[in-house]
Amino acid sequence: MTTRTMRAVVLDGPGGTDRLHVVDRPVPEPAPGWVRIKVEAFGLNRSELHTRLGLAEGVTFPRVLGIEAVGTIDADPAGVLRAGTQVATMMGGMGRTFDGGYAEYTVVPAAQVIPFHSDLSWEVLASLPETLQTAHGSLTVGLDLRPGQSLLIRGGTSALGLTAATLARERGATVLSTTRDPDRVRMLADHGVHHPLVDDGRVTDLAREIFPAGVDAALELVGTPTLPDTLKATAVHGTVCFTGMLSNQWTVPDFYPIDYLPRGVRLTAYSGEAGDLPADVLQRRLDDIAAGRTSPGPLHVYPLDDIRRAHDDLEHGRRVGKLVVRT
């Protein structure tokens, strides 16, 4: 019997983009409790960049990267999901403890699969799952954002920042969002951000010109270098949710809470799994995009053979919005 093969992106060890290789591999077989997905497209995430740079723990090599993917069910040994069902999958160890979505086929635990139905392009579909899960969880679990509140997004031109701005605006919040590039201010305004801000390292002053008492909530996507300033921009009894690390700096050295945290400002964090994205939230988002009620945001699509260029663009912040690879 001839073994079926697929194309996959393999990272052979930490380093530059030259460590990423498009190779032929056998199509993987799903174990009991797992399913096989025919991957149509996948989004790129900072998590995969961290893995490539050697910043992630518990990863063995060689490894097929990718913490998310969209496609159709190719095989379900349990017979629960019909072949051809559209699905999204994410997290759960994908691309770290087992091979992930940078391939024409991937196998994942059935519990981390979210079925959906949509006529949107696979490129648009691939831009949503992990970004939507993280934005939704950050605003609900992390910040408990309420209508009428103000939200500061630090790192606003990232795919996550843009999605969070859309969701926050839909929840009735006033959105302030930052960019380090003055040329991107107009893009933030066009995306619906109420107060685009140019980040010169002291966003506190800009935010408090608009809300003198401070913002009600803040979403930190840059990381620990900007976190102290974000905390100072937040009102007493306000909350800062630490979700992203665009700076690749994760930890606070010599953390002394009484000196570090402004009086009365709350600091929390968010990270989530596939189970933290309700299927109805994903489906509603897809339906809203299809109906033109909302936008998926800027999208940049690469073929699988251009994975090195895509990773290089991700690493150096050359693109605004979500980077997607079509298999």
Rank of each mutant, 00 (worst) to 15 (best):
163 T>P: 02
87 V>K: 01
153 I>H: 06
66 G>Q: 09
114 I>V: 15
193 V>M: 12
213 A>L: 14
126 A>T: 02
49 L>R: 08
184 R>K: 15
235 A>N: 02
118 S>V: 10
235 A>G: 00
13 G>M: 12
172 G>Q: 12
46 R>Y: 15
254 D>L: 14
94 M>C: 10
34 W>D: 13
58 G>R: 01
180 R>P: 05
94 M>R: 03
224 T>A: 14
165 A>P: 02
74 D>C: 07
104 E>V: 03
98 F>M: 02
162 L>N: 06
130 E>H: 11
248 N>E: 14
142 G>D: 07
270 Y>R: 08
302 Y>L: 10
311 H>S: 08
35 V>D: 03
157 T>E: 02
221 L>D: 01
75 A>R: 12
57 E>K: 15
104 E>I: 03
299 L>G: 06
108 V>Y: 00
245 M>E: 04
50 H>P: 00
185 V>C: 03
296 P>M: 09
321 G>L: 07
253 P>E: 11
241 C>D: 12
135 A>D: 06
66 G>C: 11
267 L>D: 00
70 V>T: 03
133 Q>V: 05
274 A>S: 14
134 T>S: 10
282 L>F: 11
33 G>I: 06
103 A>Q: 02
274 A>K: 01
251 T>E: 14
12 D>Y: 09
217 A>N: 08
269 A>V: 03
264 G>F: 09
306 D>Q: 15
51 T>R: 04
301 V>D: 03
237 H>I: 07
239 T>K: 06
46 R>Q: 11
61 F>D: 04
205 D>C: 02
274 A>C: 09
107 V>I: 14
12 D>H: 13
208 R>T: 02
208 R>H: 04
280 D>I: 10
60 T>C: 05
175 V>N: 06
158 S>D: 08
300 H>S: 13
157 T>D: 00
135 A>V: 07
227 L>C: 05
108 V>K: 00
134 T>W: 03
